[in-house]
Design a protein around this nucleic acid. Structure first.
Lengths: 333, 333
DNA sequence: CTGAAAGCGCTAACAA
DNA sequence: TTGTTAGCGCTTTCAG
């Protein structure tokens, strides 16, 4: 590996061109220099391969033209879809993303925020599931705007989805199909959006229609849910299983296949999310589609507004609508 | 959203404590200050919530303690697994990652490299599939070390997998099961690892055993492969289909299910990669497992060595071994 | 149109 | 142990 060109600074360019640093800087920014020096600098910069040091620029400006993003982990399909939306707009707008992984760990999340503050990012987009009092305070008192994704929190800006309505929507679907014996496979209530809202929406509608609902708690991972399902499926009497996420649904699906069940003949099955994994099994799994990518795009647009406006105290509260996607895994009883 | 604490700098701390900036700096770094000032500074820093500005630190040091990572897109399962490995080691070592998305676009890749150079990252980990002459030159001449992941390239450091051997390995499996009429569903040869090496390894072994191989070219996406398979499956006479990636295999699997085929009874099917998607269908898909996470860990370890050593011209060439994972989708003819 | 000078926040000689 | 000084690379008044 041969060593590359040496690092050349603005000062070097100035010396070579026999002008002052400010002239070079001016050329680089406004471009308001004489035709002659313009040509001269043009050539020198091209020859030397000069690139302005962004650390120096940012330090000078006291801001970095970057937006921090804290993701919960790398392989979360929903997060990745949101990221695509974020990336699309950020790239178009010339905004750099500083992505950090919290690995679903509260302490790492807190440290990530501090780190991004020190990096002078202009705003932080935070994917968080679990939020304790401490983190909540940190968010509120940060000197840079933090916007939460996928959860709602008092006194904090957020963009999320209509999880409660999603629950209602799929419950209505189950009821419409005639199901009255239902198993809801959910997650911990510590996750407010998934653990509380989806379930509550579902229960509210299903109970009202006179359905009998049993509950099993599992974890987000497909594998864990698969193992759990191997146990509860044999002794289950429900005709409809509502899983709190698509991944959980797929885990149940696979366990069902392995145990010799036929879906949707032996029982109907649905998820939440609408990501592609529901189409990796056959029949495809009925789900509620979430507008992940749209939310990503929207986040950056909102962040832009916050950054550009001088009014810092705009509080954003957005809940995007979701959509029932009926596929082959649910049918009339 | 209430505004946070005002930004406090090292200088502010110094003034409040009535000492010089260097004393504060010294306290922060070596800690070699008198017990008295130590206590004083301790308190002030805690009270003010002071955090050193990392832009200034990095500018001063002319380096940022960050490693740049250029990923091909957000939802690539293999990349995300490697990222987990990278993240594990980087977090442990206190190294920040600056992740950028090339979106599989050559120009974005080139710009990403420039951007990371300007950011003064200490090294760049580059996931690239397509590499043209221009990019190759850019890599070689960059003034910061760039290490390629998942592909090999002359005169460039890289870590990748034994793709050729992977091809051989799964071909041997097919042959051992008695298959002699084989369909290989691959991708463009522009992707050397996937499009060339896997295929070549497969062909070398299968041909030698007297098998008859037909070839269909598809794209990486599951959906595209699914559609393609809907067309070629009905008129296919092979007893074994080797897909060049797990995603392609799943696409074929789903098309097969939809057309009423039974796998592995009507034909055997295998993929490459070994990520969890192979277990999202039933029967699970036979594949070659790649050590994605290990590679991620290794990358950062190697990068560390490069950074720490003064010898810049260490060229790294690593190809990690792979492992055949036999599951339910392949069987004896 | 151009240059001198100050300063962003920090670190690191070097003196005291 | 502490303070003074210079400087990382850049932008931005303010004069000329």
């Amino acid at each position: 590996m041969e060593e590359g060109y040496p690092m050349v600074t603005l000062n070097d360019i100035a010396k070579i061109a026999n002008v002052s640093k400010s002239t070079v800087s001016r050329y680089l920014n406004n471009g308001s220099v004489s035709e002659k020096t313009k040509n001269k600098l043009d050539k020198i910069i091209k020859d030397t391969g000069y690139q302005p040091n962004r650390l120096a620029q940012s330090l000078k400006a006291s801001k970095s033209n970057m937006i921090g993003v804290i993701i919960p982990r790398y392989n979360s399909p929903s997060t990745n879809l949101v990221m695509e939306g974020i990336d699309t707009v950020a790239y178009r707008e010339g905004i750099q993303l500083m992505i950090m992984n919290s690995n679903l760990n509260l302490n790492r999340t807190k440290n990530n925020i501090k780190s991004l503050e020190r990096q002078k990012v202009e705003a932080i987009v935070l994917f968080a599931t679990l939020i304790d009092e401490d983190l909540s305070e940190q968010i509120k008192h940060s000197n840079i705007p933090i916007i939460l994704v996928g959860q709602e929190l008092r006194e904090v800006s957020f963009l999320t989805y209509q999880d409660y309505e999603a629950g209602r929507s799929i419950a209505q679907h189950a009821i419409d199909l005639g199901h009255r014996k239902i198993l809801f496979v959910g997650v911990t209530e510590e996750d407010h959006a998934v653990g509380v809202l989806r379930k509550k929406g579902f229960y509210d509608v299903a109970k009202k229609a006179g359905a009998e609902i049993k509950f099993v708690e599992t974890e987000f991972s497909r594998t864990y849910s698969y193992k759990k399902a191997l146990k509860f499926l044999p002794e289950m009497d429900a005709t409809y299983i509502a899983a709190a996420t698509d991944h959980i649904a797929v885990g149940i699906f696979n366990a069902g296949m392995e145990l010799g069940f036929s879906i949707p003949n032996d029982f109907s099955l649905s998820g939440f999310g609408g990501y592609s994994v529901t189409q990796n099994v056959f029949p495809n799994i009925t789900t509620v589609s979430y507008p992940f990518e749209d939310l990503g795009k929207l986040v950056i647009q909102e962040v832009q507004k916050i950054i550009q406006s001088e009014i810092e105290n705009r509080e954003i509260r957005v809940k995007l609508p979701v959509e029932l996607t009926i596929q082959g895994s649910t049918k009339k009883i």
